[in-house]
Amino acid sequence: MLLINCPFCKERNETEFVYGGPVGVDRPDPNAVADQEWVDFLTLVPNPTGPVFEKWWHARGCGEWFVICRDTVTHEILESPDEKS
């Protein structure tokens, strides 16, 4: 079980959160880029053996979306968002 640091609620059990996928490139304007770039955005995600930035949603808590950096091998959380109030 991960202990995830929500910016509002501090460390909470992983079961309160919903995983939102790794952070890829910024969403391009589909009308402005070539098909290839748009499809790459839709299908390719970073898949490193090591640190990855990923989105989590405190769905069973305050409802905040935020990004953490987590190691996919050790599961250690390396970076959490700053505390908010």
């Binding site: 995983y19 053996t49 990855v52 990923e54």
Partner: peptide
């Protein structure tokens, strides 16, 4: 397990 993982164990939950 919902998130990406290269582990070979199981999470308690």
């Amino acid at each position: 397990d919902s998130a990406q993982s290269f582990r070979r164990d199981i999470k308690q939950h």
